[in-house]
Design a protein around this nucleic acid. Structure first.
Lengths: 105, 105
DNA sequence: TCGCATACTTCGTGTTACGATGTATTACGT
DNA sequence: ACGTAATACATCGTAACACGAAGTATGCGA
């Protein structure tokens, strides 16, 4: 999939990946993989950005003798997902503009 | 609309704006305005990029004593639009991932 | 013990959308 | 005649961003 097309989707996808239960980096990548692929460096950049924007909170916990960072969505993060639903409608209208046939043909 | 979300749409929108008949910068901006807004500097960057990618050709013509650059879509440009339709299906599946409700709620 | 999966981090780079600014001509109102 | 807006295209610098590459470290199975 085209990188540019992915850009607007990535942040909101990561939020969606943690919206039902807390998750951590590696798991987020695996959960998203069937829908959208991203590298580790990209994910951690996004997580940092979303944390700065207060759309998620981070908690470090031990798991199997190893440290994991668990991410939890905040109300602001959930609002972002709702906002995206509205933007999606705009996208749909753009899609129709792009694909609409000329009346002559 | 979120800038990131626009990114993947812009190129293909410009192609859509010229796909039925040749057009020029100012007109393209006005035609796209109801769906997606972009500045002149952005448009001319995109037009240059699409020309380099051989998705459109340019022709300079006089109009009302003033020079205008008319842009015409190429077969490669039309293929790009078709390709976008496929990518859109991926977008739809991502949208569903983002908005799907937890089965418990 | 060797390699693989897990898990997170940092750095440099190329693409890109945009605002600011500039140039020039036409059209229109007063 | 004169000023202002609209038309039309161009360039420059900047900041956001996704990514590959590389690094660090641990647990686990063959």
């Amino acid at each position: 999939m085209d990188i540019q097309l992915k850009r607007g989707l990535l942040d909101v996808c990561v939020l969606a990946a943690i919206k039902d239960e807390d998750s951590y980096g590696y798991k987020i990548i695996k959960d998203m993989k069937p829908y959208i692929q991203l590298s580790e460096s990209t994910l951690y950049t996004i997580l940092k950005r979303l944390e700065t924007a207060a759309m998620l909170t981070v908690r470090t916990a031990e798991h199997g003798g190893r440290l994991r960072k668990y991410y939890r969505i905040t109300p602001a993060g959930k609002r972002r997902i709702e906002e995206f639903k509205g933007e999606w409608q705009e996208m749909v209208s753009i899609y129709r503009f792009v694909t609409k046939e000329d009346t002559d043909e």
